[in-house]
């Protein structure tokens, strides 16, 4: 079946008969003209699916300012659409993952404890311990690899649960760190963050021992007690 495409807008532009008000530069049109048959034909001719969630997300961003007199063009719409996935969710250009933009709509769903990958918890426990020992308990934001652990967790988690998974993981991360601090203070009551950690102070701490003392309290994981016996 042959595909019929309306290229009428090109002739209109060549002959200068197109509404001069809505087109200042060839190919540009005002946002208020988006739903006109002429612009819709241009979009279709350019291969843009105006029913797609990507298109709707791109147009939503463009019209955020609510000014229909502003101009756009096909290439801008296409570029903008590339930033969203098929569901219209924004894709993080750094890691290619969607579902991590916090909005007013999904903020309520973020703060909940969900089941997360055991291997990611393992990875976080080991990293927290390694960095705690190498930095003497200081949180060194210049060298930490904690973001890598979160990225790996998100890759293992379905899109709609990624925000909650990150929130849950942070609760575990804090619990591991607090357990390490308690253990070192038990080994040396005068210890302060930044001072050398007594050798073997963390030997008795395992991920399981920390998590066994965690209890869910609303949207938080709280420590019932810390067992730091060695």
């Amino acid at each position: 079946m042959s595909k019929i495409t309306d290229y009428g807008f090109l002739f209109q532009q060549m002959l200068g008969t197109k509404n001069a008000k809505s087109a200042s530069v060839i190919g540009s049109f005002q946002l208020s003209q988006l739903n006109s048959s002429s612009v819709q034909a241009q979009l279709r001719a350019a291969g843009i699916d105006t029913n797609s969630a990507q298109y709707k997300a791109a147009i939503k961003e463009m019209t955020q300012n609510g000014n229909g007199a502003m101009f756009t063009n096909i290439q801008c719409i296409k570029n903008s659409m590339k930033c969203y996935d098929k569901d219209g969710d924004y894709i993080n250009p750094r890691n290619g993952l969607a579902g991590l933009v916090l909005t007013d709509e999904n903020a309520g769903r973020q703060k909940r404890i969900i089941s997360i990958s055991e291997s990611s918890k393992d990875e976080m426990f080991e990293l927290t311990k390694k960095e705690f020992l190498s930095e003497n308990g200081v949180l060194n934001g210049d060298t930490t690899k904690r973001r890598d652990v979160y990225d790996n967790l998100y890759r293992k988690t379905k899109k709609d649960d990624r925000l909650a998974a990150g929130y849950t993981m942070e609760q575990y991360e804090r619990a591991y760190r607090q357990a390490f601090i308690s253990a070192v203070k038990q080994a040396d009551s005068n210890w302060e963050i930044g001072k050398p950690i007594p050798s073997g102070a963390l030997n008795g701490i395992t991920r399981e021992s920390v998590e066994a003392n965690l209890k869910k309290s609303g949207s938080l994981l709280t420590q019932a007690s810390v067992d730091t016996r060695i």
Partner: peptide, 11 residues
């Protein structure tokens, strides 16, 4: 992210 819109019809 540029919003892809302009005030004066910049292409």
């Amino acid at each position: 992210k540029n919003k892809g819109v302009s005030y004066n019809g910049n292409i």
